[in-house]
């Protein structure tokens, strides 16, 4: 079974220079796939194109052997962890309510779910923060709350945009261990953006690398 496949894919924004040259690929094994490259080379844009949040400039993307759905649903088993700046800084939602969003819109929250959320927060060293505002957390705590929100629904595919950037080395290791366990035990396919993975090469199943000369706007991507 193919988790994610793409053909002659070009990503970027309309009326702008494409960010990458056409490239194709397929991921049919669970594991951790690293998306690596310099700043501004199009890593986040590629992730959002895979997710269907941005239309490709050229080519097509299939998730679970089907074209990207125009309407997403929690049952599709896809979860996304954007950078923590993506969360509205004026909305002082509690951490518990924030993580609860990971269950999706149709889920009716039970007391068992609340216990599950509290357990998840404890696992990610956020015990006692459940009734605090999300914006009272530090950068690393915010990232951990966002990861808890993404994995609480037990997704089959997980996309993370630079989750290591705001974590200390202890939490980076914890995150990589958790993701490794998810990929091995629950067969989750994980795509993760960062600038480098030197300390975690043993965790990585595959790499998608962007390269670009300093005087060029379009990157070459290879797997």
């Amino acid at each position: 079974m193919s988790y994610l496949s793409w053909e002659n894919l070009v990503v970027g924004y309309p009326n702008k220079c494409p960010l990458i040259h056409p490239f194709s690929g397929e991921v049919n094994q669970p594991g951790i796939y690293a998306v690596i490259g310099q700043n501004g080379c199009g890593k986040s844009t590629l992730l959002k194109t895979w997710l269907g949040l941005i239309q490709p400039l050229q080519g097509k993307v299939c998730i679970n052997n089907k074209p990207i759905p125009t309407e997403h649903d929690i049952s599709q088993g896809i979860a996304y962890v954007p950078q923590f700046h993506a969360v509205n800084r004026y909305f002082h939602m509690t951490v518990q309510d924030f993580v609860k969003q990971g269950f999706g819109p149709k889920h009716k929250t039970t007391s068992a779910d609340v216990q599950k959320i509290l357990g998840m927060l404890s696992e990610w060293q956020l015990s006692g923060y459940e009734n605090r505002s999300f914006h009272e957390l530090s950068g690393g705590q915010k990232t951990r709350a966002m990861i808890a929100r993404a994995i609480i629904s037990k997704p089959k595919m997980l996309f993370l945009d630079e989750p290591l950037a705001s974590l200390d080395s202890c939490c980076q290791l914890q995150l990589m261990d958790t993701l490794y366990d998810l990929s091995k035990e629950k067969k989750v396919c994980i795509f993760m953006i960062d600038h480098h993975f030197e300390n975690f090469t043993s965790y990585i199943s595959g790499k998608i690398t962007f390269t670009r000369r300093h005087d060029q706007e379009t990157s070459v991507v290879f797997i």
Partner: peptide, 9 residues
């Protein structure tokens, strides 16, 4: 709170 995450789920 987070429209991109909201759309995906």
């Amino acid at each position: 709170s987070d429209p991109e995450f909201a759309e995906i789920v």
